[in-house]
Write a protein that binds this DNA or RNA. Structure first.
Lengths: 236, 236
DNA sequence: CCTCTAAGGGTCGAAATGACACTAAGATCG
DNA sequence: CGATCTTAGTGTCATTTCGACCCTTAGAGG
């Protein structure tokens, strides 16, 4: 047993999935542990922090290793360091990230086509999580709490959507995050007044009245994260 | 040079000081470094995380060692871990804390009476900080940003005040944090509507019309910090 | 051509916010 | 004692925001 403290980096990776019943649900990837402690249990993706890598880079790297994707949003969640949270002394710097729904779909389609998907990675709906290793249940709960809070005063919900989207798409993302339905008219007013959206001259057609497509206004979006620069947080 | 990563814990400790011109200003204690790197420069109080101590305990301990006091509020701020933030590889888990103004006054009075104040600790107004070691300037700025944000939707400002206080005291704390004056009438309405205050039947007299004294309603106060329990955050 | 459904805009009352006037009450000074 | 000053605390009112709900628009599909 080592006498020193080791530093790990884990990430709560969230995206939206279209469920069988049609509505959007929050989903996250977990990794099946192959070693003790907690062998054969599911855990958050992560790894040890190396001496030549910053925590946010390590989070982005392990995220890419488990999903093959780059996140649309990545932010530090919390540093967990209770003495008894692991048999050996581990401080985990935990990040949370958002993935675009279409990125995830394209990636899983590529996995199906090539025939070799990562075997010990599986996606779970946040409403139906398995038993998790360590204190990872608490961590996931905290990440969801943070997401629900942050969606109210910032533009994080765009992190789930492709570059162009309708207001209905955006509202659906909000509803999945908050777990309640929102009035379409009031939602439109609020989000238009926030100035975070840039209307395009294109429309999505194919059913009923065509809906205008919007883009995200990245200029405004960078203002609400305080004095910590882009080296500590990333938005794409 | 060591090849491993060491974990430090530092704390931004804030309190209010009554300035010569009469208004309240934010103040924090800094420690003069005696060793390289950054010898003879001022730095945030802190120390190495030991293998048998949790980060929040380490923050409370180093806080007590530098000020002799227990904080009224203590919360994790951020984990800083950029590769180049120190000559050796150090991850700093930084906390921020609030001290009661009267606790600090009593402690410094005790230091004056006994004649032995801690020599390498000095208090600085946040508007007149010296050059700081490491990335501590950025850390202090982030802590102040967090305080200013949090004062808007939670009761943290009470952390500066004694158990009983007038609405003018509380408003003065808000004004010092936000850096702007607030309308007394509207401030009263808001804070009364929040339900965070319990009126007592006592008044502060001595000048003009007596002002009612209030206490903080600790029952309501514990709700706004998410699923992280009191083992990670403390309010007194 | 009629109908269905979602997009998008308008209305209206409730609630919150901000500016500011007004009353209450002790301190101080003549 | 009484006038006045200063701060505590209340009231008012216009503006803005929020939520609920209705109405019109426009393409899809019979």
């Amino acid at each position: 047993m080592t006498r020193s403290i080791r530093v790990a980096v884990s990430t709560v990776i969230l995206t939206l999935r279209r469920s069988e019943s049609g509505e959007a649900v929050l989903t996250l990837p977990l990794v099946l542990r192959t070693r003790e402690p907690f062998a054969d249990q599911w855990a958050l993706p992560g790894g040890w922090l190396t001496v030549d890598e910053s925590p946010v880079d390590a989070a982005a790297r392990t995220l890419a290793e488990t999903t093959g994707l780059a996140p649309s949003y990545l932010e530090q969640l919390y540093a967990f360091g209770a003495v008894d949270r692991s048999p050996t002394r581990v401080v985990s710097i935990v990040y949370w990230a958002l993935l675009r729904q279409d990125d995830v779909d394209a990636q899983s389609a590529a996995h199906l086509a090539s025939g070799h998907a990562p075997e010990n990675v599986r996606w779970f709906d946040v409403g139906a999580l398995p038993e998790l290793a360590f204190d990872h249940v608490k961590i996931v709960e905290y990440a969801l709490w943070r997401l629900r809070n942050k969606v109210g005063y910032s533009g994080v919900a765009h992190g789930f959507l492709p570059a162009e989207f309708t207001l209905a798409d955006l509202r659906e993302a909000y509803e999945a995050i908050l777990g309640k339905t929102l009035d379409p008219a009031n939602f439109r007013r609020q989000v238009e007044a926030s100035g975070n959206l840039l209307p395009t001259d294109r429309f999505r057609t194919g059913s009923h009245r065509p809906a205008r497509l919007y883009r995200y206004n990245t200029d405004v979006a960078l203002a609400d994260r305080g004095p910590l620069g882009p080296e500590e947080t990333s938005i794409r």
